[in-house]
């Protein structure tokens, strides 16, 4: 099956990244990381472009991109709210926290709000079990979160955005 054909330079960040690597063997996962960092998610075009550059099939790229949970094939919100569902958080009521976020944002888990601002998801242990239950908004960590704190976290995030 023929891959789509792209001319070089359509995704400059990917080119630049691959130019810096000597050994293209095993470069797929680091490249997907890079692409997601640059474009927010792995669109079909980005996947096909990477396949072409690494001279592997689209299917292989898709297979790897869908295998690992950190890769997203869909556009995500500007703020990704991740509720930790590790065991320590679970026994400290993380499930309730997740449900409360869903209710407050009026979306289901793994969905994005219509204004593209928030994506709600659960994550595996973030390794901050002493602070359980833990919520991460992008890279910011909130510990010992109760259902009462949720409005505040959302408001915090919105204010931070406006402050910028």
């Amino acid at each position: 099956m023929a891959n789509d054909s792209f001319s070089d330079g359509v995704f400059p960040e990917i080119d630049e990244f691959l130019d810096g690597i000597e050994d293209k063997n095993g470069a797929l996962i680091p490249t997907l990381h890079k692409a997601q960092e640059a474009y927010g998610y792995l669109s079909k075009e980005v996947q096909h472009y990477i396949a072409q550059k690494l001279q592997i099939s689209n299917a292989k790229v898709y297979g790897v991109a869908t295998f690992y949970s950190l890769f997203s094939l869909e556009k995500r919100g500007r703020y990704r709210i991740n509720v930790c569902m590790g065991t320590a958080c679970y026994v400290r009521n993380a499930e309730k926290v997740l449900k409360e976020f869903a209710k407050e944002l009026d979306i289901d888990v793994k969905q994005t709000t219509s204004d593209d601002l928030f994506t709600l998801d659960s994550v595996r242990c973030v390794g901050a079990c002493g602070l359980a239950p833990v919520v991460m908004v992008n890279d910011k960590v909130y510990g010992r979160v109760g259902t009462a704190d949720i409005k505040g976290i959302i408001k915090d995030t919105e204010e931070e955005r406006c402050g910028r």
């Binding site: 063997n25 095993g26 470069a27 797929l28 996962i29 680091p30 997907l32 990381h33 297979g63 790897v64 295998f67 690992y68 949970s69 950190l70 890769f71 595996r124």
Partner: peptide, 25 residues
Amino acid sequence: LYLGAGAFVCGEETSLMNSVQGRRG
């Protein structure tokens, strides 16, 4: 360093090596 991408099974050594080789873990 080689960064994983969120797959629990990659803690298993043969899966981990497949992952380093750029494959499904």
